[in-house]
Amino acid sequence: MPLGIIFLGLYLLPTITSLYYSTQRWTLFDTTFVGLDNFIQFLQDPFLLNGVVNTFVYAFLTSGLKVTIGMFLGVLLMSNIKFRGLIRNIIFFPVLVSTIGIGITFQVLMKPDIGVLDGIVRLLGGPDVGILGSPATAIFGVILVDVWKGVGLATVIYLAGLSSIPQEYYEAAKVDGVTGWQNFRHIILPLLQPATNTVIILSLIGGLRSFDLIWAMTGGGPGFASDVLASLIYKQYQSGFFGLSTAGNVAMFVLILLLIVPLNKFLKSREVEV
């Protein structure tokens, strides 16, 4: 398979060599063997813990919200309400726009005082938010935008899943006289499991290693308050700590692996039961 060659050559091979570099002090120009020093130094990073916590919060929250909202919108758009084609297009539109563009725009929209979002909150009688400016809330501001941008994709995946559910199931349910909620809970939800799995795996992995939106909106700030693992690693790379950042990547990979592999098994097992 030509694809296999491209993939193995251009992705896997460099990835394996990066394992070697993670044990080197690597300035891109010279390498010096330092054993596990890079890993030790990476684990001693004073902001690592905060970054790990943020990574989990970010990944689980975005993926949870995308599953819930995406499924809701999918079901809604499969029902026979008016304008559903239009609504679907509107929801999907942000997926088409560049992350950098979205980041810049929301940075402006989320400004306190002059920002539109805070204006809406004030209009509803809420306090000044300035969500990106406070160390405690900045990460949640980015999470909101991530969900906003990505929920269209989740919706489309659900729509595809819903459309592949054979009509007989609905018919059978109708004959049995089940109500809407039961219908959803016992028929649609289990049959949607493959779609749910796809959304979970994609958005969870995406969330665990993503940082482009964070980078565009807060740069990990204020200070290091909204840094996630991937942005910390990027900061190392940018500082010229190439070996260190490679070691960080390896550490992140192990972390994701420990999380995703059991989860994948679990999700697959539920699929089979259906």
Binding site: G9, L10, L12, P14, T15, L28, R209, A230, N249
Partner: peptide, 23 residues
């Protein structure tokens, strides 16, 4: 095996500099 590779591909961000060296 292919499945595992695909999953790994999703998880590890590509290594920029080794890829440049290879090319």
């Amino acid at each position: 095996l292919a499945n595992g590779l695909v999953l790994i591909g999703l998880m590890i961000p590509p290594a920029l500099v080794p890829t440049i060296f290879l090319l």
